[in-house]
């Protein structure tokens, strides 16, 4: 734990933070509002006191009641990973400013978070699905997307849709699957 980093973060951002700076093992964690993301990350990136020049990870999280976007940053000025949590995105319309203006490499990570959680990154010029097909409509990593499985406590327990037998068709009827939308 890097206590000096905690003091510097508190001095620089003060009451802009939501909740205290938390530290555990080699991680320091701050929580901010989604609208603050560009300003806070730009300060962390440019300020010589922080100089977090590497974006180690960008992850979406669905807590069940709200969405989060979690950034992990690395710097030579500290021995800790810095975790910045943009907390409290509404689940119906999660929006957060993009950080591709700082790290262009965040573009695909934001695409992934959009694909899996439906989080809209405003300012990302290529926000389309990356893993799922273009005509897919759900967001698979949301907590209300149940995995159809007979695993012990899965809400979709007992459903093995892949293995259900196919009902025979009525005579004279055929299924037509279109390959072009």
């Amino acid at each position: 734990m890097d206590a000096a980093l905690k003091r510097r973060l508190e001095a620089r951002f003060g009451e802009g933070l939501q909740g205290p700076v938390r530290q555990r093992h080699d991680e320091t964690e701050i929580r901010i509002a989604p609208a603050q993301v560009p300003d806070v990350l730009r300060t962390l990136h440019d300020d010589p006191d922080f100089h977090f020049q590497l974006l180690a990870d960008l992850a979406g999280v669905d807590t069940g009641t709200a969405m989060q976007v979690v950034y992990h940053l690395w710097s030579t000025t500290t021995s800790d990973w810095l975790r910045v949590i943009a907390d409290g995105l509404p689940r119906e319309d999660p929006r957060v400013p993009s950080i591709t203006f700082l790290w262009r490499g965040a573009e695909w990570m934001e695409r992934e978070a959009y694909d899996m959680f439906g989080i809209i990154f405003e300012g990302n010029r290529d926000l389309r699905r990356i893993y799922m097909p273009a005509d897919y409509t759900s967001f698979p990593l949301r907590k209300d997307f149940y995995l159809p499985d007979d695993a012990a406590r899965s809400p979709g327990g007992g459903v093995r849709h892949m293995e259900q037998p196919q009902a025979p068709l009525a005579p004279g009827k055929t299924l037509v699957r279109r390959t072009r939308a």
Binding site: R125, D126, L127, R128, A134, D135, Q166, L169, T174, L175, V176, R177, R178, T179, R180, A181
Partner: peptide, 21 residues
């Protein structure tokens, strides 16, 4: 039971949906 209306495995250079971004 399924009939397909075109040969699969061909590449359509332009996607069959309007550009998303």
């Amino acid at each position: 039971r399924v009939t397909l209306d075109e040969q699969l495995g061909s590449f359509e250079p332009i996607p069959p949906y309007p550009p998303r971004t």
